[in-house]
Design a protein around this nucleic acid. Structure first.
Lengths: 223, 223, 223, 223
DNA sequence: TATGAATGAGCATTCATTCAT
DNA sequence: GATGAATGAATGCTCATTCAT
């Protein structure tokens, strides 16, 4: 398999002028729309340029190759998501020390952040071969791990996990994919509210041996 | 997005002769190897034909287009996996009614089945744009749901889930992805044994409010 | 400067069928015509294919890249030239031992061979950056050297050159370029006949009218 | 072949200010270095501008197109060479009437001049398609012819060449290429000294040891 | 005058698919 | 049925040149 240099996914030069930044942004926006609407295979340099209202040449002024366009596009989206989570996490930490409220808060935050970019993420996760090589993708994992670690520190002495290391790793990855599913693949008959409620409950039970909680009313309006 | 007819992913005609079946199989094997070794982008009809020791023309005798080759290849792999799970599930049902033993058994069965095709699955899940349109992929989900349903029936009256519908859906998808991770993305420092052990414990806790179990010995050899 | 693999200039596969050989030949002919008529810069893969009455795809069936087309084209032309010289050389050796007749004969042979491909050679020599990497180009030099060596062997004991090694090298390269000039850059007012006659005379004078000159001291420092 | 206007190879306007002259010179220097180091294909207007520390726009302020940059670059190099030869020729004419000393002197002068620009010349001669259209290239030929003519005038009555016109033309072009070879393609085992020595001897032999030969009939038909 | 972002025609190359043998 | 040579639209990318600032 061809080796990829780290630099192959980076911009040729940082756009400094407002004009340049606008061009780069227009290119990433166009690529994002194309990817969402028609899938990764539809992202061709000429179509991206056309949609961005820019010439192919201009595109190659900033990006060394096609992959770097996709990487920048996804990178920006992921950065937005991490930022959104970060903001909410900040608030969450300000909350009183009630585990349920805290967990509920950050699960909501992450799901909301993911939902804002659901279409793009779906394609990124299922079609982009080099997603793992995009720094921001690793950044997101690390952000998650940080959250988990902080949560754990806070509840030290309370939580008792069987094989803590393995359990923590599993719980993180399971909750992470659960949130992705809620944000991106939720079945029609289950609303986000119900799923988030159930997920919070499951997490609490894992961490605290939570006893029965009142079942939610099944009547609901939206999804 | 281009509309895809269901028939686009199917074989032109079922190979009836042994000779034909061998050809189709050789093609799928070649495609599988190529995909595992070099990624989805490396799967070109000419290379598949070459590796299969067949002419491109013959390939198009059975398959209407490239996607149908990939679909057949992944379909076969997924059928193998479902079959493997099915066999184990059968044994599991024969076991005495000990939840832990049953859960442990089928988690092991699924992880083992996934591991046998890990390389191919990794690529299928992260690069193939039409995975969801492959009937067997849906079949796998349904198989899982069946298992869960059977498990639930067996333990009716014992298990109390908060919002059973939402919880069941979540639990299924979480455990499913946990098993994928264990089979395909396990971190170096956590062995399959530890992860399976922890996962079983987590599932039990969700279903039965399982109390503390003995922590596993941390000494381990392999992975 | 980019490194070039030897294989980059060679055919992907030898055409075995008559049909294939005809295709390869048509491609080389088209490239030769294009080069002669419009220069090396006009040789683009699409134009070559078009002129050859072949699709670009077919072209890449046999040639790994553009350079290999040019290399094959020039290689064939150079092989023709070497073959032509070889034939004449054979006759020349059959001639009686008259130096003038022999030299006249092979100069004529080489000039005629070069003239038959003058247009192509002119472009090859003045525009093709990788001429020296084409094996047949080296082959031509070696053919020349062989001729010179044979000529020298024949006249051993008669010819006395000042610093024989340096003189032989110089004489070879000078006569070689003289022949190229006669074949390809002859001024309007000087006919080939006159130029060949004069060249034969000059060569004879170098080889046989030599009065003894002092050999140069062979001791030398630099280059 | 595309027709080229003479003006296409010339500067748009002569730089009059010192500033402008410096810019033009920087551009030519950059082009020369690029050509020497990486070949004619590496000479792109953007890279030239960059290496020259100038914007592409400025470059087009003085040059109408890319070819004119190369033409100016080579023109300057050739002018340097002609100037160098001119200086030496002047000294040579001041020398006493010893043919060997005179010939030795100007051969040395030319070889030295060529050597000073060997890298650039090699590329110019083997890759630049329009070298013959650069006025200075013609100028160099004319300078050579002048030298030869002067030499001939000086030795009138002594030198007797078989078919003087053809022989002179041949001798000029042969000696010219011999000097190029000595300056640019000398084989490892032959030093410049030996080769120049041998060349001088060869020239002398052509010019002064000539026994009477029958002049060729001047009547001729073709070319 | 000088700049350098922008242009877009054009290039080399790939690959799913067809069809004469 | 089987073959594999042939096709050509489409792709990623370059670079001489222009022009608004």
């Amino acid at each position: 398999m061809a080796v990829r240099q780290a630099s192959d996914l980076q911009l040729k030069k940082q756009p400094r002028q407002a004009r340049s930044r606008a061009t780069v942004e227009a290119i990433c926006d166009a690529a994002a729309r194309l990817m969402q609407d028609e899938g990764y295979a539809a992202v061709t340099t000429n179509r991206v340029a056309e949609r961005a209202g820019v010439s192919v040449g201009s595109l190659y002024e900033y990006f060394p190759n096609k992959q770097s366009i996709v990487a920048a596009t996804l990178g920006a989206a992921l950065r937005d998501i991490v930022a959104g989570i970060g903001r909410s996490l900040h608030e969450a930490l300000a909350l009183p020390d009630q585990p349920r409220a805290g967990i509920d808060h950050w699960i909501r935050a992450i799901v909301a952040a993911l939902e804002s970019r659901a279409g793009l993420l779906r394609v990124a996760l299922s079609e982009v071969p080099f997603l793992g090589e995009i720094p921001e993708a690793r950044g997101l994992s690390q952000a998650l791990e940080q959250i988990v670690r902080k949560g754990r520190d806070k509840s030290a002495g309370v939580v008792r996990l069987y094989d803590p290391e393995a359990s923590a790793w599993l719980l993180t990855s399971m909750v992470w994919t659960a949130m992705q599913q809620i944000a991106m693949q939720r079945p029609d008959h289950l609303s986000r509210e119900r799923l988030i409620g159930a997920l919070v409950e499951m997490v609490l039970r894992q961490l605290y041996d939570a006893p029965e909680a009142e079942a939610p009313s099944v009547r609901e309006s939206g999804n």
